[in-house]
Nucleic acid binder design. Structure first.
Lengths: 219, 219
DNA sequence: TACTTCCGATTGTGATAACAATAGTGTGAG
DNA sequence: CTCACACTATTGTTATCACAATCGGAAGTA
């Protein structure tokens, strides 16, 4: 009930030219990624609708979409929750991350230009600022932006939506590992990745990326 | 308009204890997989709603879900279409299939019992019947059932939804390759897979599965 | 005190209607 | 004949209401 009330405060980027249901979707998505809604806690359509001051319908669509993406589950009781995580499920998700992301990075490698590397450097710097910022979720988001930009350098990319689905399922359980020590490691991995990109070294890129993901796996 | 009218006739498994929007979702999904809606053709909410004799809202939810799964796209004009396919996108999708499905098969291998193999044999036989059946889509569905059953032998499976998403994006373009010659090859591959499962040979399984997918790639 | 039963409150679902934006088309000027 | 403009019809979106199913707790019984 009131536990989710802070989602309105912490995570409400204002409405732009987008539709209401998109705004609700992104808001709820950020809330799930930031762990505002704890696993096992039930959320209700009307409750979220009243908190966000919108009708129940945009919330319905957003929730259905999040369910279809694995960020939420609808129990047979028609209760809506963040799915509970098991050790083996977490392991399987990380293994999939490694497989999908290394493949995405390697196939993006031929398209990497110097300007891309420049942007990646900026995104890597932004990760530091985000981790020093207000809430822990920002760091994860900046991290995702770095990875996503790399993979999307390949114009014929089809794996990013799948990868984002994994991030979404992993999201609620990232913050527990978000200590500053881990962050230091990640920065090193990112710089390893950038140098591998500069040298067009696919194998080194793959190794650095895998290490980057495994660093976050220390849960 | 009238081109999609046959979706009601060809593909309407009757409503059971499920909700309307689920029924609409499965119906539209089958329609997309069977290629009833051709790429580039626009579908409208109200048009589908009147064809299925339901309100616009369940159709909306189903369409949004299919969009989120990549089976449909919403253009910025708010037009809804089956996405057009390009050669490189097709190639990328098949490469992802190989990566994801071989990994899913190998991780499922330790869980395979003799009873699983028996069911897989039955599913393989069902593929023949399906290809000899009424419409071409049935063969693809039976093929998917075979693969899905294999991957879901692993109880800690998280990649099947991702794989199904790939199938859904590939679906509208499968039927063009659905010749009987291809089918023969696939049957061989499936039997190779089954013998590899019996012998617990991960490498042979991987090779047979990759060959099975590549056989369907001859477009 | 513990368990069963029943009723009210709440939930998700579905339909209808009103609204903003866009596409398609017809008309007019050049 | 071609192009620009306005108008109409259609589309997706959102809100509100009605309905069936479920959950919660209160009352009653052993």
């Amino acid at each position: 009930m009131n536990e989710t009330a802070l989602l309105t405060q912490a995570l409400s980027p204002k409405l732009e030219g987008q539709t209401t249901h998109q705004w609700v979707y992104y808001t709820l998505r950020q809330a799930v990624l930031a762990g505002v809604i704890s696993p096992g806690q039930s959320v209700t359509l009307r409750g979220l609708a009243s908190e966000l001051a919108v009708s129940a319908m945009p919330v319905r669509e957003a929730i259905h979409r999040l369910c279809c993406e694995g960020a939420l589950v609808m129990l047979d009781n028609r209760r809506i929750q963040v799915p509970r995580m098991t050790r083996s499920k977490l392991h399987a998700l990380y293994e999939l991350r490694i497989i999908l992301e290394t493949q995405a990075a390697v196939t993006a490698l031929p398209y990497i230009q110097t300007q891309h590397i420049e942007v990646l450097r900026q995104l890597d710097d932004a990760i530091d600022s985000a981790y020093a910022g207000t809430h822990v979720g920002a760091g994860s988001l900046a991290n995702q932006a770095f990875h996503r930009y790399l993979y999307e350098a390949n114009p014929h990319q089809v794996s990013v939506p799948l990868i984002e689905r994994l991030w979404l399922q992993l999201g609620p359980f990232w913050r527990v590992t978000a200590s500053l020590l881990d962050e230091y490691y990640q920065i090193d991995r990112h710089q390893e990745m950038i140098t591998a990109l500069e040298r067009k070294n696919a194998f080194a890129l793959q190794r650095a990326l895998e290490a980057d993901i495994r660093d976050g796996m220390a849960a």
